[in-house]
Structure formats: C-alpha cells, structure tokens
Design a protein around this nucleic acid. Structure first.
Length: 108
DNA sequence: ATAATGACTGAAT
DNA sequence: AATTCAGCCATTA
C-alpha cells in the first residue's frame, strides 16, 4: 500500500511529547504540505487503537477536539490528554500558548 | 484518469 | 457569534 504520507504523519505525531499538543495543520506543515490537514485526520482515522501513535495530541485549529460523529472517541481523547497533564479551559480548549508542540523542519 | 470523500482551515455570509 | 462556502490534497472506488 502506498501509504507513505500516512506513515509520515505517524512519525511526526509520535515525536510530540506527552503533555503537548499540535494541530492538523501543524503536522501537515511539518510534512511539507501545510494544506493537507485533512489528510492528517484521515491518517489518524485509519489508526488502530493499539497503535503507539499519540493521536490524542492532535487537535484542530480552534485548539479543540474535532470529530465527526464518533463522540466517544473525542471524550476518550480528552481523558487521555488530561491524564498526560494537558489542561482544558472552560471552553474545552487547550492552552496553545504553553503546550503547543513545535515541529522541526519538514522531513522529506 | 475522473469523481467523491474527509478527525481541516480560513474567509465570507 | 454561528453557519456556510470554497480551497487543499492524499486516498479510495
């Protein structure tokens, strides 16, 4: 399967330390395609539960958990993040100013 | 190769 | 402020 983009997403997400978060756009940009945020989400959707990828650290541009219909997953994500020390404010938002992960240069 | 889809994003209504 | 529209781009059918 030619899912190399997918693998790159996983590699980047894996480098996000616990207690930190990033946006789909950030991950996409770190892969060299700043507009491919949707593909990042697609990649994570195909991610098995038993994977070693901290998918829960990926939020949308609004610093909130974004999901389509699987709300149970969104709840699980929040619990996982809180267990890592991530704090959600009254609006269910994460403090990007302090916990947003900075990716290095795009890895070809 | 064309058309449709989607855990997104930003601008426009 | 909330909702809608359009753009991006990799994967699937």
């Amino acid at each position: 399967m030619a899912e190399r983009f997918n693998d790159r997403v996983y590699a980047r997400v894996r480098e996000v330390p616990a207690g930190r978060v990033a946006t789909y756009g950030d991950v996409a940009a770190s892969l060299g395609s700043p507009r491919a945020a949707r593909e990042v989400g697609w990649a994570l959707s195909a991610l098995p539960e038993a994977s070693d990828v901290p998918w829960q650290r990926i939020l949308n541009a609004s610093a909130r958990i974004s999901f389509k219909g699987d709300t149970w997953r969104a709840v699980a994500q929040r619990q996982l993040l809180e267990a890592e020390g991530v704090v959600f404010d009254a609006d269910d938002r994460v403090d990007f100013a302090t916990m947003r992960h900075r990716f290095g240069p795009p890895a070809a």
